[in-house]
Amino acid sequence: MSNMRQMRFREALREAMSEEMDRDERVFLMGEEVGHYQGAYKVTEGMLDRFGARRIIDTPIAESGFAGIGIGAAMMGLRPIVEFMTWNFSAVAFDQILNNASKVRQMSGGQFSCPIVFRGPNGSAKQVGSQHSTSMEHFYATIPGLKVVAPAFPADAKGLMKQAIRDDNPVVFIESETLYSVKGDVAEDQDAIEFGHAKIVRTGSAVTLVAYSRMTHVALDAASLLAKEGIDVEVVDLRTLRPLDEETIVRSVQKTHRCIVVHEGWSYGGVGAEIADRVQRLAFDWLEAPILRVAQLDVGMPYNARLEQACIPQPERVRDTVKRLVFRDG
């Protein structure tokens, strides 16, 4: 066993990027405020001093422009990391990601690849209002050609970031402002983690909760509340949304016979809908109850603190949903 260190989520990301920049000259980072300002959320703190302005590049506010530059550079064999100050701002670069990054390999008959990482915080933070609280992963996860990664813990953040940078495809890397200060154990020799492997972060038998990113913590909190009432739930942390580890989900559901997906963002056509489809197809005979989703309420994010919290999935809402499912016959 190698030595463990306590590390914050943002430090784990920074360490992953720095190690990959050390080992591969082709890797560079660009985005708004990543250099001199030390990162809007301090993820890239100190990296400009360490790697210099050639590789840590402050950009103007032009997401479509610098996302496109990253894509062109990736086609030429570089390995850009493009930071969006938040994933909300990627909406103005959506054309670049959808029409260029995800499609150039097929359009060129396999001649050109696009090894690029787009990363940044996603979903809600704290009262940042309607336009800064969108969960963009649902849009990106539908697009073949992309990979979508959404870790919940610092060790996974580090290992998956290293893999994202090494991957030969465009990777959408989903973080959360509310996770950046979360601490966790990270092995000193934490290496890249292969995509497509969900992790059971709590074992149980009554219900399978499927979650990712920040919602994994909400699901775990709900599990603690439920444990006090004698209900024992299993929590599957997806870690990557595309590829999606349906095997681990299905195996868990075959044990618990019930499934609830917990995610930020809207439920209509989202990641939860995709998981519900796969579970009913692949574990139909094991299900004892409908598959439910706990998601953002189907409205834009309100500013008012109380209303905002009511819109975002909370441990209590997850707990109540579990109880509805477990006691539906009772």
Partner: peptide
């Protein structure tokens, strides 16, 4: 020949990235 692109103007930043890569290297 790095492609023909179908979204008007969408290839212009990409082309800048191709130029950026030459300069970076």
């Amino acid at each position: 020949m790095l492609g023909g692109y179908g979204i008007v103007g969408g290839h212009i930043p990409l082309a800048c990235g191709v130029a950026f890569a030459a300069k970076y290297q």
